[in-house]
Design a protein around this nucleic acid. Structure first.
Lengths: 219, 219
DNA sequence: AATACACTTGCCACCCAGTGAAAAGCTAGC
DNA sequence: GCTAGCTTTTCACTGGGTGGCAAGTGTATT
């Protein structure tokens, strides 16, 4: 093996990922997506199925399985971050009416959205939970890289999406950045001044959360 | 192979599961838990780490990784059940003050809690999201097995936990049971009459959800 | 009906990838 | 310094994973 990593497991995990990302896949789709012989893909998918990581529907298509949901839910729950941050996020939503996200550093230079409090505007940014975005060019990415200015928040207009403005602040525990809270707003609704206001609110909420996490009050 | 299933992948998945379940594990703990040579466990965990399914902390301990959270969140989200059911669950919580759960059938004859709206009582049943319970002897289990009486709800006193009473109703889509909503209450607070009331409320909510899912309104 | 195409599945010989014992580092405690 | 326990590397062995092939099934096209 070239980089001391088990090929078989890598393949199985790739299959798991594609099945999840496509929502529902046939064997041949999956095998083509990861460039494997159908017979091999079948064997691996069966193994995943036997462990409950994927589930097979009546028509033979594969979907994400209950075991994956269980472990995912546990993992998200363990990061009790979601619970800890929930109230502050609700507060921000109420103050701004916009969608408030919580994200953490993901795999391979990405940010992963793990929680949302949806905004109350009818036109709003909705449901990116589970998605990843590149660190480069995103407000969350700047914050995760520790490039937050002294103001305590980052504003990015038209970063990942052309019509969205993002404001983000770091949540720290014992000095380390552990998460990002951010507000995503349709750009047309956001001018310089309201962005600053959002930033101030965000930074304040983030500071409260950070001190709670650092001294253990929140846990 | 005895049952046409790849041993290597099975082992890797077992490792992944134990890491998640223990929250944080050392290499030797994990290798002992799944009965593998440390060197083998190390290699597999590195593969999992390279794919982001586990993450290694500074001190060398393993935790659930971002990729797992991502896929888990996607899987849970795909089952947009959580979104669809959320409002009704909030309504039930407001009517009763108790914790309301949403669960689906899990792996190996179990029910998996995937969502909660926490009750407002200070003594309440809190946060079983991510846990599984056996179908046998639980209200959710009875419902998932299709053993709901004509009343439309099941009441189980002291099923899984000695001091908890559970009331559960089935959520169906196109005639098939796809989920269970349930209310879990500390038994001392629940008498026969209030349990019946809960049941009626639950059954009504479940019926509304089911019809919405069946005719596509909810999606 | 007959043909063609695509997908799923079982089979099995080949051989390389996965394995685990052993040994070497690495820390922490006595 | 010595011991105990954990992590990590190395390496020879071999059995588990692989994928080509063909049979079986399903669904468009002529």
């Amino acid at each position: 093996m070239s980089e001391q990593s088990t090929r078989t497991v890598e393949r199985a995990l790739s299959l798991l990922a594609t099945v999840c990302e496509k929502g529902s896949t046939s064997l041949s789709d999956a095998s083509r997506a990861v460039d494997l012989a159908p017979s091999t893909a079948l064997r691996l998918l069966r193994t995943l199925e036997a462990s409950g990581f994927v589930r097979r529907e009546d028509e033979g298509r594969y979907r994400a399985g209950p075991r994956l949901m269980q472990l995912g839910a546990q993992a998200l729950g363990h990061e009790s971050l979601i619970d800890v941050c929930h109230d502050e996020m609700v507060g921000l939503e109420q103050a701004t009416g916009e969608s408030v996200y919580l994200s953490v550093e993901g795999h391979a230079a990405s940010a992963l959205y793990i929680s949302i409090v949806e905004g109350s505007h009818s036109v709003r940014h909705s449901n990116w939970v589970g998605r990843t975005i590149p660190l480069a060019g995103s407000a969350a990415g700047l914050v995760l890289r520790g490039e937050t200015p002294d103001s305590g928040y980052v504003i990015v207009e038209r970063g990942i999406e052309r019509d969205v403005t993002a404001v983000a602040s770091p949540v720290t525990a014992a000095g380390r950045i552990v998460a990002v809270i951010s507000i995503l707003v349709p750009s047309y609704r956001m001018d310089e001044q309201s962005a600053q206001q959002c930033g101030v609110l965000l930074a304040a909420a983030a500071r409260r959360l950070s001190s709670g996490l650092t001294d253990g009050t929140a846990l």
